[in-house]
Simulated assay, not measured.
Amino acid sequence: MPRRSPNPSPEAEILDRQLGDAIRRFRTDLGLSQQALGTRLSLSGQQVQKYESGANRVSASALYRIARELDQPVTAFFPSPSGQDDLDDLLRTPEGRALSRGFSGIHDMEQRRALGVIAGGLARRPS
């Protein structure tokens, strides 16, 4: 398995941790243990733990396999370009990802607009 270079750049270390956090978030959303995900990937649970902690780098091919097992696009594991903070916040929660998947399944534009109005109204409503 790929290991960390002896002197990774600070940017690489940050990205490794963000990638590991995303793997953990998607894995736990599916209710999988590290061991269960490792078994699906023919890896040990310890290797999954090392990926999630950023101790070991995830190769491109390993990330592709992980993304397939966690039912996510590979791009979901990386930070979004600046200016997409609201979308990032939405996709960080299981409810937001479920909402996004459900919305994608609505093909009627009137229904999509209606859902937007409902969500906007709920957001302005005092709790």
Rank of each mutant, 00 (worst) to 15 (best):
L41Y: 04
S100T: 15
E69D: 11
L19M: 09
F77V: 00
Q72A: 15
T75K: 03
D108Y: 03
E11P: 00
D29T: 10
A60I: 10
S80P: 01
P2F: 08
R57M: 07
E52I: 10
S127Q: 10
L41M: 13
D108T: 04
G96F: 00
G120C: 06
P6Q: 11
P2I: 14
L87P: 03
V117L: 15
S100D: 10
L63I: 10
R65E: 14
Q72R: 15
L32E: 04
Y51T: 06
L63S: 12
G121E: 12
L37T: 05
Q46V: 14
S61D: 14
I106E: 08
P81G: 15
D86H: 04
S104A: 15
H107G: 14
G102D: 13
R3E: 15
M109I: 13
A12T: 10
Q111T: 15
M1Q: 11
G120H: 08
L87S: 05
L122S: 02
S9G: 12
S82A: 14
Q34D: 01
G102Y: 11
Q46T: 12
P94M: 07
T28D: 02
R17A: 11
Q46W: 04
P81V: 11
D88L: 13
G54R: 02
Q47T: 15
A36N: 03
D21L: 11
Q47E: 15
D16P: 00
G31A: 08
D86W: 00
I23C: 04
S33M: 09
G45M: 07
S61T: 12
Q18V: 04
